[in-house]
Structure formats: C-alpha cells, structure tokens
Amino acid sequence: MLTALVDYDSGNLHSAHKAFERMARERGEGTIVVTSEPDVVAKADRIVLPGDGAFPACKKQLFDYSGLFEAISEAVTEKGRPFMGICIGMQMLATRGLEYEETKGFDWIGGEVVKIEPSDPALKVPHMGWNNLHLEGAHPVLEGIETGDHAYFVHSYHFKVADPAHRLAYVNYGEEVTAIVARDNIIGTQFHPEKSQRAGLRIVSNFLGWKP
C-alpha cells in the first residue's frame, strides 16, 4: 500500500512525513512517499494533502505543478481513493476561500473558509494551541477518539460547511470552529494530527487502515 504525501512547497512536511511513517511502521503495512509527481499520486492508494499558509498562495502553488491537481482529483473523485487534507489542505476542499481575496476551492465539500471572529476580544487570532474536540458524528478515522481529546491548531480562518452533516467535530473558540470535515472517501482536519501527540497519531493510524 502506497500513501502519497503531496509536496507543493507549502510549509513543513517533515513532521507529517515522520508521523505517517511511524504509524505505517507500527501497523506493519505500507510505504509513505513525499511527492510532487502526478504519476506517483495517480498510483497511490491513499493521498494526504498537508499545507500551511494563506489560501490563495497555497492554491496557486498546488496548481503551479502541472497535472498534479488533476492526478489528485482523478484518484479521489473518480477512483474513490481515501484522501486526507490537513490544515490548508483541508480548507481547500471548500467551495471557496475568503482569505485576502475570493479563491475557488476544490468544492468537494460545500462551504466557505472565513476569518475566525471570536465574540470575545480577548481571544487572539490566530487560534494557536491545544483545543479539545467536540465530536458530532462517528467515523472510522475517529475510532478511539473521544470528545475532550486535545488537538493542536494554528490558523486564522476556518471552514464553515454548507451541510452540517459534513462537519464531524468542532472546537470552541468564541464560536464553534470546524475541526474535522468528511464526506464519502474524503476527510480533513483543521488541526495538525502530526503535532497532536496521542490523538493525532491515532487519527493518522486509523486513516492508514480506512477502507471507505
């Protein structure tokens, strides 16, 4: 089993790579490859899209790799391969993002990515640090994860889903901030599982065994 971590020059892939490698080793299955090659993505059994940074810049960087998005899209939307987006990689699943300017997302999960606007002015933006998850639905990737478990977040925008059924978890930060989205063979986490210690590694491990 081959899991492709898509590298499109967006942020730090090292810790994500190490977290996926470690869990693949513990499960005794599969290889993790960091790649920008459409050919490699096309033959991967699972795809992970990480990313840090601003929505428009990340989208542009991804599309600057000729054929890369097309390869991801074909694998995910036509072949139904399991897909996980992390942070910006999750936000780009939306219909559109409103960071700096309006940018079209993949529109795989309906909704918009909007600025976090906590009602309490004492709450800082970015939302940075450990927050506890409120689970709203069961999912194979969330097996062993409970409401109250902590995950590590760092972001200033968040994903407002159009259909509440697509939101699997939120955290409280002056408002309900989307933490996990999912639809069919697609899942996305706003937080960084690779930096979220026990709960994060469990999610990574579950994803590697997920058969949607």
Partner: peptide, 24 residues
C-alpha cells in the same frame, strides 16, 4: 509529535527554510 520552535542566530528566510525542512 508536538510543536517545536527553534531560535537563536536566525537571520534570513534561508535560515527559516533550512530549519523548517530539518523539522522545526
């Protein structure tokens, strides 16, 4: 598998890139 910050002697964006690539 937790956030790691590295400081000290960071001067340029190239220093940032190198530290991020290394794992910071």
């Amino acid at each position: 598998f937790m956030p790691l910050t590295i400081g000290g002697g960071v001067r340029t964006t190239e220093d940032v890139r190198n530290l991020l690539l290394a794992g910071a």
